[in-house]
Design a binder for these strands. Structure first.
Lengths: 226, 226
DNA sequence: TTACGCTTGTAAAGACCATGTCAAACTCGC
DNA sequence: GCGAGTTTGACATGGTCTTTACAAGCGTAA
């Protein structure tokens, strides 16, 4: 459940929004002035803050400024009128969105969801590994060499991916076995050599360059960056 | 300081982003079309590029395609609308992330930081030892002498690395044997002498200076600090 | 200084072992 | 049972390490 902090001096408006957001499944906390909001943000771990620009004592802009010194919490600014200056300076201070007042709760909700979605997609952001002419899409389990699809088996893909993740570094057979085959390397296990051999063959179909996967004698293998 | 290249034909948007990123401590350069961007990338050593998909003359996709032929610079694509096709084909070309427009500067910043962090975690863990004209990258098992790669065997590398770690001090053969060969020195073992001989030979290919590895009679060897 | 013993430099040879690779045996899901 | 994928076995290869041999260097004592 997402924790949201609502900051506005308009008590009735905030009350209404709170009700609405609670029903939508958010965990809502309310503050009525900037100073309190600052304290809340630094204390509790909120996922997002909705901040009114126009407030007595300390306005939203100053509040955001202070908060940005210590936190990178996503912030949606509520601006009175369609004031453009507010928008710019709010964004430059590090607001993630601004919503002109008056706005319907639904509209605000949409913005909140949008921001949270972005933040989350940020974390799980697509994993693409690029090393020289090799491109690997981990999620899709897809690998290309110089724009040609490499038709790798599952294990081969794991191996290549592991090497790519550590491109430029030597990866021992022990590590390769653990990470790509999922078991510790045992004494006379030749699987890794065999798989690497076939990976090299598949790569060599598209370029003579087979020494991109270097063997480091008695140490392991290394995918060279270049 | 990280060098960032912003590429978008929307001059006001780019101007705003540039301001924002400058304040965040980046070194920002701007290009308004794909052709210029290509030239910039190949010329300057940027750490990251933000590339708009929708551009006149040459769109972002083609630009990325061209750049990928010659550079593996991290790229964030800016896609208009939530256009899914753009997303896919951008990633397949080797973009590292995509951000749907419109986006706030903060959001873009977060993505930029995320990518840079990922890149740096690859490099910063590298253990580099520098002694005079010798540079050793332990993790990569790579050694250079005056910018020339030394093609060392595993044991040779171990020996040189051990000497480099104790540069300026005498290292006994006993210690060398233990640390580089992994076994105690036995009575008539000449391996270390032989290996050091060949290391010296390999170094002497690039400079007459072979006394960088000093023999301390009846004591051991020493890599001299310059 | 010279002679002697011990240590080190280095080339060459051989032993050893890791790796490349093919093919057969083996799994496992269908 | 079939087929794709994986592992195992076998063999060839070749790189690397060690050993050996001899030459050269160093230190010390006569």
């Amino acid at each position: 459940m997402n924790k949201i902090l609502l900051v506005d001096d308009d008590i009735t408006l905030v009350g209404m929004l709170k009700e609405f957001l609670l029903q939508e499944g958010f965990d809502v906390t309310v503050a009525h002035d900037g100073i309190t909001a600052e304290q809340y943000v630094l204390a509790g771990n909120f996922d997002l803050m909705v901040l009114d620009v126009m407030m007595p004592v300390q306005d939203g802009i100053q509040t955001l400024k202070n908060i940005r010194l210590k936190s990178s919490i996503p912030v949606i600014m509520l601006t009175a009128k369609g004031d453009n200056e507010d928008k710019i300076s709010g964004l430059e201070l590090g607001a993630d969105d601004y919503v002109p007042k008056p706005c319907t709760p639904r509209e605000l909700l949409a913005r909140i969801r949008a921001i949270l979605r972005r933040m989350q997609s940020n974390v799980s952001s697509t994993h693409v590994i690029t090393v020289g002419s090799l491109v690997i899409w981990s999620a899709q389990r897809r690998a290309e060499w110089q724009d040609h699809v490499l038709e790798l088996t599952s294990t081969e893909f794991n191996l290549l991916e592991t090497l790519a993740r550590h491109a430029g570094f030597v990866v021992t057979k022990e590590d390769l076995s653990l990470q790509a085959l999922g078991r510790p390397l045992s004494k006379f296990d030749r699987s890794i050599d065999v798989h690497l051999s076939s990976i090299r063959q598949k790569i060599s179909k598209f370029s003579g360059n087979t020494h991109c996967i270097q063997t480091i004698y008695r140490m392991g293998y290394q995918l060279v960056k270049d």
